[in-house]
């Protein structure tokens, strides 16, 4: 099947999943920090967070990725030269890809988490504080569990877009699924077959994600009575 290129394609799939998973971790961390910053009482911090989300929403991910990949290369080498390092530092496309996608989706998750946090009535937090809980404990016991439930629909959407965004890391030379499909297509002169196979794998990943996150949503909303 697939002229023996199936292992190559699956190898690429692993890289794609690796990029997606690593980017997600960065995006969630940035999203939490960003949401906290957007709800901060200090204007400068709010302003910084707004600039972050505005810039990301205004520029295509491909342009950001090329900027970080090519620009980062020069920036790091200039910094290394300034520190007296003689050699040449190569930016790994995996690192550049993960950094870019994590940075971009951190901004989208910032909005998701901010919306979820704002949907929790302030009275609950005040009640927790009135009981003598520390702010950290209030966050862990009251705010966070509800935030997870409220953030799942937005999170699902962002994860699906993130997985699809990873396709562009092939442009900066990472041997992900798209790159593997391209290699196989070149060797066999059957580009349609291999890009169709890549599409099928992406569709499988997004379908499985939808099912899994749907089940998770069902689980965390088990205590809620729906109107319908």
């Amino acid at each position: 099947m697939l002229h023996g290129f199936l292992p190559t394609l699956l190898d690429g799939t692993l890289t794609t999943l690796g990029v997606a998973g690593a980017s997600l971790v960065i995006a969630v961390l940035l999203g939490l920090v960003g949401a906290a910053a957007k709800l901060s009482r200090i204007p400068v911090i709010r302003w910084l967070a707004s600039t972050y989300t505005t810039v990301v929403r205004g520029v295509p991910d491909l342009v950001l990725m090329l900027l970080i990949f090519f620009g980062g290369q020069i920036g790091i080498n200039a910094a290394a030269a300034a520190l007296g390092y003689e050699g040449y530092v190569d930016i790994n496309p995996f690192v550049a890809g993960v950094a870019t996608i994590g940075f971009i989706f951190g901004a989208y998750l910032t909005e998701t988490f901010r919306g979820a946090l704002m949907a929790i009535p302030a009275g609950q937090r005040e009640a927790g504080l009135a009981f003598g809980m520390s702010p950290m404990r209030v966050f862990l016991r009251i705010t966070f569990p509800q935030m997870v439930r409220l953030a799942i629909p937005g999170f699902t959407n962002n994860w699906l877009v993130l997985v699809k965004s990873t396709a562009i890391v092939s442009v900066i030379g990472l041997t992900d699924m798209m790159h593997s499909a391209g290699l196989a297509a070149g060797a066999t002169r059957e580009p349609f077959t291999f890009y169709l196979a890549a599409a099928a794998i992406y569709l499988a990943i997004t379908s499985i994600s939808l099912l899994a996150l749907g089940a998770l949503e069902k689980r965390v909303t088990v205590g809620l009575r729906g109107a319908a």
Binding site: K164, T166, M178, P191, F192, Y195, A199, S207
Partner: peptide
Amino acid sequence: GTPMLVQLFLIYYG
């Protein structure tokens, strides 16, 4: 459910 880049490649190269 599939990236637009794949759709583009399917049409352009495929």
